[in-house]
Amino acid sequence: MALQLSTHKLGKSFNRRIVFRDVDAHVGEGETLMIAGRNGAGKSTLVKILCGVLSPSQGRVVVEGTGKLNEFDRKGLFGLVAPYLQVYDEFSAMENLMLAASLRGERGDRSVYAGLLTRVVLEPNRADPVHGFSSGMKQRLKYALALAHHPRILILDEPMANLDADGMAIVRTIMREQRSRGILVVATNDPADIDAHEQKVNLNERS
């Protein structure tokens, strides 16, 4: 069975404020789901629920086509790049990648990660502490961290944030590759961020 990600009657409220409700979405392998909505519509909240770091107030998220997963494998399904996802500033880019591997219960491979850092043009800065990085460099490192474990579902929240033209070109390539090997979910206000999408959730209609 092919990989599928879907939501059923998903809703989230904080105290009495309803962020969104009755969100039904479905995306399959090789497809892209675009999450659109004005500021405050709940795009980031939906992203956090999809990757399991926030619980929904109602409804559920279902991932099919994976077989039985343990807790590590379930977490390893997802890769996330988002402005609110932070890296450890006192460590270098390579240390962050090695740490992420250990946190996932795996042994990191420095040579593989060196290739990944080359891909996001951070290899010359691999040993520098991240607190000296620009916001664009940190965004590139987040891509390296999200891709290091080959996630089958890649979720990007504001994917082009802080990136220059070269960085945006790298991200477009990453998006194309992800579509060919799994599921891509992109939360953005800007349709120009995304080349194509098969499925769309407009949160402006769900609050």
Binding site: F72, S102, R104, G105, E106
Partner: peptide, 22 residues
């Protein structure tokens, strides 16, 4: 790599990673 290792071994590695990181 991960599929061959038991969940317990991965769990211990993750807990040690949190400790060593801190």
């Amino acid at each position: 790599m991960s599929a061959r290792e038991s969940v317990a071994a991965r769990w211990i590695r993750a807990a040690l990673a949190v400790f060593l990181k801190d």
